[in-house]
Simulated assay, not measured.
Amino acid sequence: MSSTDQGAPAVSIDRPEDLGDRTAPDTARGYRGEGHDRPVLTIDDFSVEYKGERVVKAVRNVTLSLGRGEILGLAGESGCGKSTLAYGINRLLKPPAVITGGSAHFHSREGYVIDLNELSGEELRAFRWDKIAMVFQGAMNSLNPVITIQRQMEDIFSTHRPDMSKKDRRVKCGDLLERVGVDRARLRSFPHELSGGMRQRVMIAMAMALDPQVMIMDEPTTALDVVVQREILREITRLRADLGFAVIFITHDLPLLLEISDRIAVMREGEIVELGDAVELYTNPQHEYTRKLLASFPSLTGERGDFIRGGSRAQNGEPA
Rank of each mutant, 00 (worst) to 15 (best):
L254I: 14
I236E: 06
H36W: 01
R15E: 11
T290M: 09
D21E: 13
P162T: 13
Q152M: 11
R109V: 09
P319L: 08
I248S: 00
A320C: 09
Y282I: 00
A314N: 09
F127V: 05
E280N: 09
D14G: 12
R32K: 14
A185H: 04
D262A: 06
M206E: 03
I264F: 01
F190H: 14
E34K: 01
P95Q: 11
L275W: 00
S142L: 05
V180R: 03
I272M: 01
I260G: 01
A97V: 10
Q286K: 15
S120Q: 13
E49M: 08
A246D: 02
T283W: 07
M140G: 02
L257Y: 00
G317V: 07
E235V: 15
R304T: 14
E110V: 02
P16N: 12
F245N: 03
G81L: 10
S103G: 14
R309F: 05
E303C: 04
D277V: 04
I149F: 14
R263E: 00
G138L: 06
Q150L: 10
I264C: 01
Q286V: 08
Q137N: 09
G196I: 05
I204H: 04
D14W: 11
L194D: 03
L239H: 07
V228P: 06
Q286I: 12
D218A: 02
P255H: 01
H252K: 08
D37L: 06
A75H: 09
P220F: 03
R29F: 05
G35R: 00
F297D: 14
L243Q: 05
V171M: 04
V202A: 05
R291C: 05
I248V: 15
R161V: 05
L74D: 01
Q229V: 08
L294M: 13
I132Q: 02
M217W: 06
R304A: 13
E53C: 07
N61S: 12
D218G: 03
M203S: 09
F106E: 06
M267H: 02
L119A: 07
R68D: 01
T290W: 11
T222P: 10
N90L: 13
E118N: 15
P319E: 07
G67H: 06
I43V: 15
L281H: 02
G102T: 12
Q200I: 11
Q229Y: 07
V40Q: 06
G101H: 12
E269N: 14
L294N: 10
R128T: 06
A75M: 11
V182A: 04
K166R: 15
D168K: 14
A185C: 06
Q150E: 11
S2D: 08
V146T: 15
D45G: 09
E231M: 10
I149H: 01
T148S: 14
A8I: 02
V266F: 01
T148N: 08
S195V: 04
E280F: 01
W129F: 02
E219V: 08
V146E: 04
R184F: 13
I132W: 08
L177W: 04
A207S: 14
D155I: 12
